[in-house]
Every structure is written in structure tokens, then in C-alpha cells.
């Protein structure tokens, strides 16, 4: 036993100085709730350049066969790049921002509904949270696309609903459900003693929630919230299946315009992949940084 090297416990940066059996931590110290962000943030920053490597190297590995070379494909991409960026990826970002905004707003309402004293509100909120949390995103997107009219008439004014707006609604549904769970979990993570202390000072339930409980768990909600934003952004290409003109749709159209040479596939899709990486990677890093910072407190 004595010769055994002291082992490290994950999350503790000190080596143990004992050979005696020690209690391993009960909970895994890795934040399990952040699969996507943790996975993304743990990559070294140069991963993005590796993703773009095919873009940079392909032109040199010119397959002599055929009239259309990789060099041609590369110059085609260069030509399309500003368009893909401005009309394509920017749109993905806009869709993700709107979906996040709506999803967060509705999610907070639903989350507070889940902790309501009213049994009926509680049940209903729980039901919708579970329903949208456990449905495939693509299915939700198709349902919204097919179920929503292409225009609505309010007080005689015809308001068109473009496909991208339906996509925003479709994507905001699973976000809403997940934010709802974040809110519920954060509120429940505040010790009940805080509720009791506030109750004994004659605060009403509303006051306790808004003045005492939510301000305390607000910080705790930010990392998981950002985690879901990164996931949402990476899910926006789903909209291309609905014909929304975002980066993947436009990439396909651009390739068609370039006569669908198979050599175009790798440069164009690598470019899209690289864009998503460079957008989501900083978010994931900040998420993990905040998660570490806030989890130490309290």
C-alpha cells in the first residue's frame, strides 16, 4: 500500500498525502449539464483552423482529371464567400437570436408556472415543458411550418408570416422548454431556508420569488442559458430543410450555380462548419468559464 502513488481527485488540484482509503467525491465534479459547451470548450482553439484545413490545402492537391480543378472550386468559394456570410450566416445568427429571445421569454413564464402553487398551472406548465423538451427539433419545425398559415389577418390588416419567422417559432419551442427547466432547477436550488427566512419576515410569495430567490439564482442560470444558445445556433441549419434561406440553403444554391461539381462540396461545407465553430467556440469557452466561477460560490 505504502508504495502506491497518491491519486488525484477530479476537481481538486492538490495531491492527497495519504495512503489510507479516502472517500471519493459523491458527485462527479465535471458539470454534466453542459455536454455541448464542455465538449466544444475543451477543444483547443486551433481546431477551427483544422476544420478549415481542407479549404486551404485542397487547391494544391489538384486532381488533374477533369476540366474543373480544386483550384476552380476554391476560387468559386472565394467569390461566394461575402454572399454566404452576409445573406447566409448572418441570417442563421438572426434566427438564433430571435428564437432565443422568444424561447427565453416564454421559458421563464413556463418555468415560473412549474413552481406555481396553483396545481393546475403547475401541471400544465410541466406538461408543455416535457412535451417540447423531448420532441425532435425537426419534427417541431415541420409542425410549425405546416400548421401555421402563411399570413394572418388582424383587424383587417394582412400580415404575412415568412418561412424564416416560422422557423424562429419552431426553434423557440424546444428552447422555451429547456429554459423552463433551467428556471425551475435554479429556483429549487436555492435552499428552502431562504424561503422560510423571508416568510418569517412577512414577505408575500411574489416578493420572495422576485426580490429574494430569483436575484440569487439569476447568475446560476446564465451558463446553462448560454449553453442552450450555442446548441440552438448549431441547430439553425435545420431550417434549410424548410427552405429558409440560411447558410446551408445558400451554399447548396451557390454550388448549383457553379454546375454542381463534386469538388465544391468539401470547400463549401468546410467553410460553413468553420463559421459555426468560430461563432460558437467563444460562447462555449465563456460558458465554461462562468460555470466554473459561479459554481465555486455558495
Amino acid at each position: 500500500m505504502a508504495s502506491k502513488r497518491p491519486s488525484t481527485i477530479p476537481g481538486i488540484n492538490r495531491h492527497g498525502n495519504t495512503d489510507l482509503p479516502v472517500l471519493k467525491p459523491f458527485a462527479p465534479s465535471q458539470p454534466i449539464a453542459f455536454h455541448t459547451s464542455a465538449w466544444l470548450a475543451n477543444m483547443p482553439a486551433w481546431t477551427g483552423f483544422v476544420l478549415l484545413l481542407p479549404l486551404m490545402l485542397w487547391p494544391f492537391a489538384s486532381h488533374a482529371a477533369g476540366s474543373f480543378t480544386m483550384t476552380d472550386a476554391f476560387s468559386a468559394l472565394i467569390r461566394w464567400m461575402p454572399f454566404l456570410l452576409k445573406s447566409g450566416f448572418l441570417f442563421n445568427v438572426i434566427i438564433s437570436l430571435f428564437a432565443m429571445l422568444i424561447g427565453t421569454f416564454l421559458g421563464i413564464i413556463l418555468g415560473l408556472g412549474q413552481i406555481s402553487k396553483n396545481r393546475f398551472i403547475k401541471r400544465i406548465s410541466w406538461f408543455f415543458t416535457q412535451l417540447f423538451r423531448n420532441s425532435p427539433w425537426l419534427v417541431l419545425l415541420f409542425i410549425v411550418l405546416l400548421a401555421f398559415p402563411f399570413e394572418v389577418t388582424i383587424f383587417g390588416v394582412i400580415i404575412p408570416i415568412p418561412d424564416w419567422m416560422k422557423a424562429v417559432i419552431g426553434l423557440s419551442l424546444p428552447i422555451m422548454a429547456n429554459i423552463s427547466e433551467i428556471v425551475r432547477g435554479a429556483v429549487l436550488s436555492v435552499p428552502t431556508a431562504q424561503w422560510e427566512a423571508a416568510e418569517s419576515l412577512a414577505f408575500s410569495r411574489q416578493q420572495i420569488l422576485w426580490r429574494i430567490i430569483l436575484p440569487q439564482c439569476f447568475k446560476r442560470m446564465i451558463p446553462p442559458w448560454m449553453n442552450w444558445y450555442a446548441i440552438l445556433t448549431m441547430a439553425t441549419p435545420l431550417c434549410s430543410l424548410l427552405g429558409v434561406e440560411e447558410i446551408i440553403t445558400l451554399s447548396r444554391q451557390a454550388m448549383e450555380a457553379e454546375n454542381n461539381h463534386p469538388e465544391l462540396l468539401v470547400p463549401f461545407y468546410s467553410f460553413a462548419l468553420g463559421l459555426f465553430f468560430f461563432y460558437c467556440y467563444p460562447i462555449a469557452r465563456v460558458t465554461m468559464y462562468l460555470e466554473r466561477r459561479y459554481s465555486v460560490k455558495i
Binding site: 431556508a193 427566512a197 423571508a198 416568510e199 418569517s200 419576515l201 412577512a202 429574494i212 440569487q216
Partner: peptide
């Protein structure tokens, strides 16, 4: 509760 004050074992101040 406006008439009755209470102090707890774990202080329970609002952090």
C-alpha cells in the same frame, strides 16, 4: 408574521 420575529440556526441572511 409582522408581529412575530424569528431567528434561525443557520442565520439565513440573503446572500
Amino acid at each position: 408574521r409582522k408581529r412575530v420575529g424569528m431567528v434561525f440556526q443557520q442565520y439565513n441572511l440573503f446572500p
